[in-house]
Design a protein around this nucleic acid. Sequence first.
DNA 1: TGTTTATATTGCAATATTACGATCTATTGT
DNA 2: ACAATAGATCGTAATATTGCAATATAAACA
Lengths: 109, 109
Amino acid sequence: MGTTKSTGFSKKQNDLVIVLRAMAHPARLAIIQHLLKVNSCIGGELVDELPLAQPTVSRHLKELKDAGIIKGTIDGVKVNYCINSKKWNLIREQLDQLFATSVKDNDCC
Amino acid sequence: MGTTKSTGFSKKQNDLVIVLRAMAHPARLAIIQHLLKVNSCIGGELVDELPLAQPTVSRHLKELKDAGIIKGTIDGVKVNYCINSKKWNLIREQLDQLFATSVKDNDCC
DNA sequence: TGTTTATATTGCAATATTACGATCTATTGT
DNA sequence: ACAATAGATCGTAATATTGCAATATAAACA
């Protein structure tokens, strides 16, 4: 236990969960938002932007990369990070789908 | 450690993270989707829908309730659960805002 | 080659999460 | 009052996550 049970749920559900998990951390959300804002790719100046030590930022970047949300290309000593636009649009679609159903006000709640 | 650092991030960021965290679990996502689908409030038949034991489902329901995503009203022995439409629409807005920025394909990535 | 610079990885330690069996609580029906 | 039913809570065990210091790696430059 401590392990999330993924069997018994659809692949679609589990896939979305992976992305949501990756986004569900202030540092990682901040990284995403920063990359969206500056649009152009930037290197590890993210470390200066965040209230976290360099190894910790590196770890979060890795998690975002593993989830497919960001991409990183080595540029000499530095690394350029940016949003994976293809994946980002896919996530948008998945969330649009989730929020497509209009929620009626229920009498019981 | 093990604790997520929230200082140094905006309240807006931390608030969204709370919601994303709540959604970032297959069981909880499944609960949300089920409640969206059936729309009308249902009780603990969610336990039958999910591959998890009753106490575990109860815990997940509590977490969704704590995050404000769902509401539960006692109806005799049963409990009616439903999406908190107000909160749900708010989340939608927050995500719309996050995804509002169009992501250009960057030359470096 | 040696040094600097930028980033990644490792190795902890602390805390959080997940899951389930057992148990408690509260309401309904007999 | 007593049993049945629906949920919540507790206790516990296993695993995951987070964060940082220390260290490793790898490219650029003297």
